[in-house]
Write a protein that binds this DNA or RNA. Structure first.
Length: 300
DNA sequence: AGCACA
């Protein structure tokens, strides 16, 4: 089975919103590591870290540039099997690069990655690529430099070493985004905190338009939730965002909506940028749609 | 597109 099927941007949809259903695979039970495919070849280890390190139970991650198929894969390890599953269901299908529309394909790895030596704190990178097509040699192989030594081949009789199996990708898909920089919507919470309340000045074009026309607010309005979304599911994601206070869910007939209150506009803005489009396990659409609320949540 | 609680 091929687990990395990238679709050309104009291709007919083959169920583009499918969420990986964790099969009852006894072999994978208890594995703490996720196998992440669908990454562009110019992905940075920092991007993987930014995307996963906010998830509860995150332990460490590894990015490998496979020499084959112009693709990179990542192995992300959590402290518990449940945390790994939770991150998988919430991040699987995430659009990693809006320009190509490529989505992450995440499944449990075949075995748990070995922890970096000494409880390491830097990214682990393995680069098997011969031709660095995009001048991509800015990353350094810190820590473990052994080519095959990273994700731990325990004793599960693995016939192959990583979750990729033998199915690599025919590089027939056109992959020409050479002129444009790709953007990752994972974590851009580093914008400078300017505390001046700017209204709707037209001189402010294209800089602060995180939300459409709603002025910034420390409370966020969250829509596009699945019918089965629970408050706990949403709270689990929100609680990792700095400054998060309280969540309230309302369901007006059909689709539930939620309000999340933060300490200030800076933290609510950062959380909105970080979580925009996040796919939950209960999501059946594009993922979370987050805006500033029209009015602040009442003080508890 | 869908914005409540007081």
């Amino acid at each position: 089975m091929s687990l990395s099927h990238r679709l050309p941007p104009g291709a007919p949809a083959v169920d583009p919103y499918y969420v990986y259903a964790p099969r009852p695979d006894p072999q994978r039970h208890g594995v703490l590591t996720l196998f992440v495919a669908g990454l562009p070849d110019d992905v940075k280890p920092r991007e993987i870290h930014n995307l996963f390190s906010h998830r509860p139970g995150f332990d460490h991650c590894l990015l490998e540039y496979t020499g084959r198929g112009n693709q990179a894969v990542a192995f992300v390890t959590f402290f518990t099997h449940e945390a790994a599953l939770s991150a998988m269901t919430s991040l699987n299908g995430t659009i990693f690069d809006p320009e190509t529309g490529d989505r992450l394909h995440i499944e449990l790895a075949k075995s748990t990655s070995r922890r970096p030596r000494g409880g390491g704190e830097v990214y682990r990178v393995i680069d098997k690529r011969a031709n660095k097509t995009e001048g991509n040699a800015d990353h350094e192989n810190v820590g473990d430099e052994g080519d095959e030594a990273a994700w731990g081949e325990d004793e599960d009789g693995g016939s192959d070493d990583n979750g990729d199996g033998g199915s690599d990708e025919p590089s027939g898909t056109e992959n020409e985004n050479s002129s444009d920089k790709n953007e990752l919507s994972a974590d851009q919470s580093d914008q400078p905190a300017h505390k001046q309340q700017n209204g709707q000045s037209p001189s402010n074009d294209g800089r602060d338009k995180s939300s459409s026309d709603i002025p910034p607010c420390s409370t966020l309005f969250i829509a596009n939730l699945g019918h089965t979304c629970t408050e706990d599911e949403l709270k689990e994601v929100l609680s990792k965002e700095p400054g998060f206070h309280v969540l309230k869910m309302r369901r007006r007939g059909g689709m539930p909506v939620a309000f999340a209150d933060f300490t200030d506009i800076e933290s609510s803005t950062a959380a909105m940028n970080s979580l925009q489009g996040t796919l939950l396990a209960s999501s059946d659409n594009d993922g979370l749609h987050i805006e500033y609320a029209r009015s602040k949540m009442r003080k508890s």
